[in-house]
Design a protein around this nucleic acid. Sequence first.
DNA 1: TTCCTTTAGTAATACGTATAACTAACCGAA
DNA 2: TTCGGTTAGTTATACGTATTACTAAAGGAA
Lengths: 351, 351
Amino acid sequence: MTTSTTRTKRAKGRDTAAPGRPTQKDIALAAGVSQAAVSLVLNKAETPSVPVATRTRILEVAEELGYRPNHPARMLRSARTMTFACVIPDITNPFYPGLVRGLQTVAGPAGYDVLIFDTDGRPEREARAIDWLLQGRADGVVATFFHLRVPQLAVLARKGIPLVRLESQHKPDGPLAIDSVYIDNAEAAAAMTRLLIARGHRRIAMIQAEFGPSHRRAQGYGAVMREAGLSPDFVTDSAYSEESGARAMRRLLDRKRDRPTAVFGASDVLALGAMEAARAAGLSIPGDIAIAGFDDIPVAKLLGLTTVRQPEFDLGALAAETLVRRLQPGGLKAPGKSHELKFEIIKRSSV
Amino acid sequence: MTTSTTRTKRAKGRDTAAPGRPTQKDIALAAGVSQAAVSLVLNKAETPSVPVATRTRILEVAEELGYRPNHPARMLRSARTMTFACVIPDITNPFYPGLVRGLQTVAGPAGYDVLIFDTDGRPEREARAIDWLLQGRADGVVATFFHLRVPQLAVLARKGIPLVRLESQHKPDGPLAIDSVYIDNAEAAAAMTRLLIARGHRRIAMIQAEFGPSHRRAQGYGAVMREAGLSPDFVTDSAYSEESGARAMRRLLDRKRDRPTAVFGASDVLALGAMEAARAAGLSIPGDIAIAGFDDIPVAKLLGLTTVRQPEFDLGALAAETLVRRLQPGGLKAPGKSHELKFEIIKRSSV
DNA sequence: TTCCTTTAGTAATACGTATAACTAACCGAA
DNA sequence: TTCGGTTAGTTATACGTATTACTAAAGGAA
């Protein structure tokens, strides 16, 4: 009969006694109804069991107290965060902000917020992102992973968190809720390489990064070069940064012979670094050396960089649409799809 | 004695029966202990009341089941999100990614994640950000607001959410937990204006945006111009975008007389747009027209834009440090401080 | 009057975690 | 033998919300 439990009701409560945010309980108290009634009124557009008078009273009190729903509590109860995560390697690479914008444009109206998680392109930070996601902080993810592969990512899908990967090539359908959006990176790089060859270049070098889409782009370039009877010429530096691009370019320019007449950066940021190094060496572009990039980030236009346009905004929007669809009832069961968007070769003055 | 409550224990449970993420209860069940014991072991480095054997058993089971703490539940319980929000007007403006990086560099090691909220510089989205924060989604905020003023922001501080504003000038100390970091925008603009005058320019125009730091920069410019006996010449376009900058520049170039010989963009992005428009009009920079900017975003270097360097990374880092300090016990009581960092005039080829 | 239906809600519970308060079992000392 | 202390935990509760199951009161019909 648990008689002894008639303990005094613990006077402490919250020791801070902060004026904290008002809860539904506070509203209920002030309006003279139960917390359940408040929850009903605040969440349903129509409440058959609550008359208009009570309803408006509750709403007024809520307004007056400045009530805002407690997000954690809501998440806990409904297991829905109404949040998408966007996992990217480097927010300072101008390619990604455009992607994020595309995401937000679709996610916002659908009621989802977008959060950004920066991995720095490092394996341990990518793993941390997965952990972060497994904590239930987002309902879905759009991501670029340089290191993790499907086996490591499958855990997300298994726990009911759909993932859309930003890929560099078509992926076969899979049973899990892992989709992808991509442009055909190999074909795009091939097209750019053909352009360089058509402009008369024979010694064409490619600046690569160690990880990420650079690999696939290199394949396209390599294939076309060999097809044309030319030998591929790769310089690899670590990251997708201007410093990496500049460093690689300096290595090329330091050569005594076989100095290339054209350089293809595996990304615009790399190409920009290359341009800088070339200019610093007193070379004119494209007079002394032609330079091409990949991505068509906003500054490419300003600098006259010939490049491959990726529809970043559309990729983001498409990814968001895919997630929204996945999160509709039953959406998680559909097989994983790979969606292709078209690239475009943008000819400017650097080639 | 509540006899009737011996109702059948509701067979449903979770109808989905999803393999969902394992909880502490699952671990407890598998390890043959109570949920409380699991919580203790998982959270405390040392548990006097749990012997090593039990401890390792619990940890093993947790590992085996792939346990991850449920973030919403944790937040609800502890009222701590371990998250900072970064509220900015436009993630595609290259100034902000640098700021975010600075933030992350300090926040990460301190255990905080950083989320980005993009307001698009619009009043309603700024209000939405406040709402979002009041839902308890972040422990602290670093923000740039173009429209909201202290009265609207005070609600955050009152609910215990410290805010660090990215400002354009010194702010007097206040009683609330609202701090700011800034460079002296007026003085910086003044210095740049002096440079332009020293280079012999007399007709110097400034391209402004409607909101944000542009105003304060215009003051510095205006003061120096008048001091030198010259008349300030403002062109205002809506946003901090290249299109705005280009449009404003075209308006200047369309003039029949008093065409400026130098143009000072209130931000680098505006200046970039201006450069573009000038080039499109066949003008050489700085031969026909000199152009200066403000911010020193990464591409400014590539384009040889003379500009004011804001230490974006350091501003972000300082803001994060301020938040971390605020969130230490008692930290919310200190008066709001304004921290100044130094700007630098970066002379390049565009002036 | 009795029974049924509608109205206007309320009570209870679950979500997963953290923590304060408690306790059963055992050992050693006075 | 009784008391005190340690060991190894457990029980109970709270955080704020959403939702299901329930019910008291009033009104109307038979």
